[in-house]
């Protein structure tokens, strides 16, 4: 902090100090997320269904945010999904080998009613569009951990587009179901 009245010639203004903060936390995911992560380590995507409005949440956070009630029923989902919307990111991810521009999309897995954010690849960025069908490309099984990163990215599927009004409403069996 400077005080203009007292800053003499040999009294330089201090404009900053280094005061690094290190705090250690043992982060917990939450009970619902822990169950989701346990299953994704087995290569399975799961959601949770709201007992009141029947909507299926992924990744589950332990409650239906709309109804404010706990969710418990687990629902196994497909690893196929529909593009709800997307963006093409031109800024690199620090420490990540993916090079920009890359596509980040809101994807609704079949059987779920809400989107998850993930990468879209093996595609021409200019051709990505809302309603597009995509499928997960998993990492090799030996690399699976407790993380959504077990899916490396999603890639386009050769299936007809989902009409906008049906996005987020497909059964686990997909467009044909």
């Amino acid at each position: 902090m400077s005080d203009e009245n007292n800053v003499g010639e040999d009294n330089e203004t201090v404009t900053g100090i280094e005061a690094p903060i290190y705090l250690k936390y043992n982060f917990t995911a939450g009970a619902a997320a822990s169950r989701f992560l346990t299953r994704i380590k087995e290569g399975v995507l799961t959601g949770q269904r709201c007992p009141r409005c029947s909507q299926v949440y992924i990744p589950p956070r332990g409650s239906c945010a709309a109804c404010g009630v706990p969710t418990e029923e687990e629902v196994e989902l497909a690893d196929k999904a529909t593009v709800e919307s997307f963006t093409i990111v031109s800024i690199p991810i620090p420490g990540n080998p993916i090079e920009p521009p890359f596509v980040v999309a809101n994807l609704v897995p079949d059987g779920a009613n809400i989107s998850v954010i993930h990468l879209l690849s093996e595609c021409d960025n200019a051709e990505v569009h809302i309603g597009q069908r995509v499928q997960a490309v998993w990492k090799p099984q030996e690399e699976w951990g407790y993380a959504l990163d077990n899916i490396r990215y999603f890639k386009p599927l050769d299936e007809p587009d989902v009409p906008v009004e049906r996005i987020g409403k497909l059964p686990v069996t997909g467009l044909e179901g």
Partner: peptide, 25 residues
């Protein structure tokens, strides 16, 4: 970065860009 979630460095812009795209559509 929180453990257990994909870290896509999308920030606020990455969150709002898909919503803007849907508005344009």
């Amino acid at each position: 970065p929180q453990p257990f979630s994909t870290h896509l460095n999308a920030g606020a812009g990455g969150y709002f860009a898909p919503i803007i795209r849907e508005y344009i559509r």
